[in-house]
Amino acid sequence: MEWLVAIAIGVMTSSGVYLVLRARTFPLVLGLTLISYAVNVFLFVMGRLQIGEAAIISAETTKYTDPLPQALVLTAIVIAFGMTAFLIVLALKARSELGNDHVDGMSYVAEEQENKVAGGDAK
């Protein structure tokens, strides 16, 4: 089972990295989301893979699963969730202010500013 989980994390991360390197904001958001999924699974696996074991100490249990990674994953999920929501809003703001959805949308803005200056002089 370890190799299956490892491959899943690897595929998610590499797809995430590929999407983060795209030039537009929407694939970028998707890429960061994929990476954060991969991170969550990775953190979870770091407590070692155990099936059907208890996380809380009791008298009759002898084998336990590590509860700490589960707590870490929960924190990481909440933070990634908030950050993604913020990034989507920021991407929309950038789309409306820069006039395009390129991550590096500057050349378009520079052209537009030149046009505006030229237009202003004509008046």
Partner: peptide, 17 residues
């Protein structure tokens, strides 16, 4: 500011991962 901010946010999100 929005453009500089977008770059800042994205690189820090990658950093967090």
């Amino acid at each position: 500011r929005t453009k500089g901010g977008l770059h800042y946010v994205v690189i820090n999100l990658v950093g967090s991962s």
